[in-house]
Design a binder for these strands. Structure first.
Lengths: 159, 159
DNA sequence: CGCAACATTGACGTGCGCGTTAACGTTGAT
DNA sequence: ATCAACGTTAACGCGCACGTCAATGTTGCG
């Protein structure tokens, strides 16, 4: 019950799906589409998800729900990011150093692009927020005029 | 060519679609689904969109692309908002004053809900932004180590 | 009037992102 | 050994948000 037993544990698809608030079908679908690398399996063939897998799954959700990317777009992004891990993995067997640097630069660019997009979205959202806030003020005004019309005697108002 | 001739002009579906960066099909679809009220027509039956229509179309795009709502959800929102216009229209024929006030309160609530949702989204987005920015710093670090390894002589670096 | 450009209403098609069902295998506790 | 709970693949289905014809009508300019 405590989270002590959860540190570094591998999850079967059921629990993985629940924790990610997705369905098993969705996880398998992401795998099928190449967004998730085929996870390790138990002897019987059951999928086992690592903490890294879970993080990746969460990234997918964020990119999809928050930024509205299609799975195809997300796949591309993640592939660009994977370069980072690949580089880290093969860091010591340093074949083709310049090639790695090139990949790193690409990954950096992709990430910057995402940040730019986030900034744009947030800008639009906050301007939308402002028009909505303005609208609320209008409603308040309306309701105030209503209250005045119906009950012309002053009363104590709460905030 | 100047925008003088555009003030208050009614647009046919072709130009309307182009200005909204949507297709004619999409506009007709929105109308079909009840998101757009049936626009006025020319004698021949061609649709004519007013400036208000265009604003509404833009709101739909914002709610869809920015916040990721489904058309069904957007429809509900717009209906709640329409109350505002309805009230304004029937303001003087003041039948059932309390009913109107109730509608105004509802519309206010709906709008506040949207604002809350925007705040939540923006919160998540800015935390995502932070992790991405962190990632960029990691890349920069990597690239710096690369540069050092290949060219051990100190050079002038920008920012 | 003729003709190109633009519009109309159906109706069927499509891609995405899964849901659902069927038939079957695995695991683990009792 | 049994049995419930959990998992597997394969295949079909589905709702959404339109795309894409096809057949037909309208507008407006020369």
């Amino acid at each position: 019950m405590a989270d002590i037993s959860n540190r570094g544990r591998l999850l079967q698809i059921g629990e993985a799906a629940e924790r990610a608030s997705l369905t098993q079908r969705t996880l398998r679908y992401y795998e099928e589409k190449g967004l998730l690398s085929p996870p390790t399996r138990m002897d019987g063939g059951f999928r086992l998800y690592t903490a890294d897998d879970m993080e990746r799954i969460d990234r997918i959700r964020q990119l999809k729900e928050l930024l509205g990317f299609s799975l195809a777009e997300i796949k591309e992004m993640l592939e660009a990011e994977d370069v980072r891990l690949q580089i880290r993995a093969e860091w010591r067997k340093d074949a083709d150093a310049e090639e790695k640097a090139e990949k790193a630069r690409t990954a950096r660019e992709v990430t910057l692009q995402q940040i730019t997009l986030i900034d744009q979205k947030m800008g639009k959202m906050s301007s939308l927020r402002e028009t909505l806030a303005e609208r609320v003020r209008k409603y308040d005004e309306m309701l105030l005029r209503f209250a005045e019309a119906q009950e012309p005697e002053p009363a104590t108002i709460q905030s």
